[in-house]
Structure formats: C-alpha cells, structure tokens
Nucleic acid binder design. Structure first.
Length: 253
DNA sequence: CTAGGGTTAG
C-alpha cells in the first residue's frame, strides 16, 4: 500500500536525485519487487547523470532473496568489483548476506574474507548462513573467531548461535559445543520464549533431559509462557533420554 | 535526507 503511494510520488518527480532513486529501490526490495528495483537501477545508469552508490547497491542486493536470482546477484557483484562504484562496507555485508541466503557459502565466505574490517553484520550473515546451510559446526567455529576478533555478539546474532548450538548433537564435540550454547544463554540479558526453547531443545538433543526440565521450571518461575514448541522440545528430550513416563506428563497438553 | 544480519522439534 505504502509502496503504491511511494511510486506515485516518485514518478511525479521529473529529475529525482540519488537519494530518491535509492529510497525507491529499497522500497521495492523491501516489498520483494526486486525486478522493479533492478529496472530503476538500470534507468539510473542509462541516464548517465548519476552514478549508483553504496546505498543503491545495497538496495538491489538486499532484494534478491531466492536462489533463482543468483545470476542477477553475480552480475551486481561483478559491477561492485568494477571501479566507478562506491563500495562501502555495507555493500560487502549485503553481498555476504545475499550469498548466505542463496546457501552459496563458498561465495559468501569469499566476499567475507575480502573485507578488510568485517563488521558484526557481516559476521552475523556468514554465521547464520552456515547454520541455515546445515553446517552448524562451522557456524560455531566462526562464532569463536568473532570473539577472537574482539567482537561481541548482540542479541540478533545470539539467536542464531543458540540455534546452531541446539542442533549440534555430535557426540564427540557435543558437550563442548553444548557448553558454549549454555554460556551464551547464561550471559543473555533478555531471554524470551524462543531463546528458552532453543536451549531446551539443545539440551534434549544431547540427552540432558533433567537440565531441560530444570530450565522449563525456571521459565515458568520467571512468568514466561511456554508454547507448543516448548512442549515439543520437552517431549523430544524425553525421547532422547528414554523417559517415557515423564513424557506422558506433557502429552495431555 | 536512503542501506546490510535473527528466532524454536522431528
């Protein structure tokens, strides 16, 4: 709805400045009209009066959400590498994020290491990408490197870390990784139902049902309202620990 | 004056 109004206003401007172009492109991207954004991008270049800048590129890149748009993304990436465009750190992070969304982790990593000073968002995009790709081990590996780099994960990144830690039930390095998940969780200031659920499911997968129940009780005590995912995780914990009777307690819910 | 990362099970 807002997009329609925006494009009406935009089309009424005879000579939009770069900020206007960029805002419109971001608007299209945000509403998943990447092709419209790309059309504007090409119009800027055809006009020749302005050069797309970092904002323009980030706008386009962030609108590419599906693997089928990989070709477009590669093309934009190529343009970024060419001189004449202002490639800020934002653009690099946006590219890492885009390739992560496409599950092209080799490409994401390639962009990541080319950044001289990757910021928290670039780290976050990479780590989340590995997690989404199913490589939780690598996600946690890079999380460690982030700490080595002297950076501190914020609440957004922690959400991904917890998911990765919860999924990693590898017996050999399980306890270590699980410890990391717990450590992150313990240091969280603002836990919510999702973060509790993530850790409860992680504990369950590691066969630590007793700890999972303990956390569940803590959750209740703090006045948090467990949801279906909480109970699902608790049931899972019972399966992994052979606690059939305890599982029965939750089945009535 | 505009822009980039995230959230639960099997």
């Amino acid at each position: 709805m807002g997009l329609v109004s925006a494009s009406k206003v935009f089309s009424g401007v005879s000579e939009p400045d770069l900020v206007l172009w960029n805002s419109m492109i971001s608007g299209y991207s945000f509403c998943e009209f990447w092709a419209e954004g790309l059309r504007l991008f090409n119009r800027i270049r055809e006009n020749g009066k302005q050069q797309p800048d970092g904002y323009t590129l980030v706008g386009i890149i962030s609108g590419l959400i599906d693997f089928s748009q990989l070709g477009i993304g590669l093309g934009i990436h190529g343009l970024c590498l060419k001189s004449g465009f202002d490639c800020s750190a934002y653009v690099g992070s946006a590219l890492v994020s885009m390739y992560s969304r496409f599950k092209c982790m080799n490409l994401a990593y390639g962009v990541f290491i080319s950044l001289c000073q990757p910021d928290l968002l670039a780290w976050s995009a990479l780590i989340t990408g590995y997690s989404r790709y199913g490589d939780h081990k690598k996600a946690l590996f890079f999380y460690r490197n982030l700490s080595v780099d002297g950076k501190k994960a914020d609440s957004i990144l922690i959400a991904s870390i917890l998911v990765a830690a919860a999924h990693l039930a590898d017996v050999r390095c399980g306890s270590e990784i699980h410890g990391l998940g717990i450590l992150v969780f313990d240091n969280m200031s603002n836990r919510n139902v999702v973060s509790y659920n993530s850790v409860i499911s992680g504990l369950g997968l590691h066969g630590l049902a007793v700890q999972a129940f303990k956390l569940f009780e803590e959750m209740i005590e703090t006045g948090m309202k467990p949801d279906e995912s909480t109970f699902s995780s608790l049931l899972c914990a019972c399966c992994h620990s052979g606690l059939v009777k305890d599982g029965g307690k939750f089945s009535g819910e």
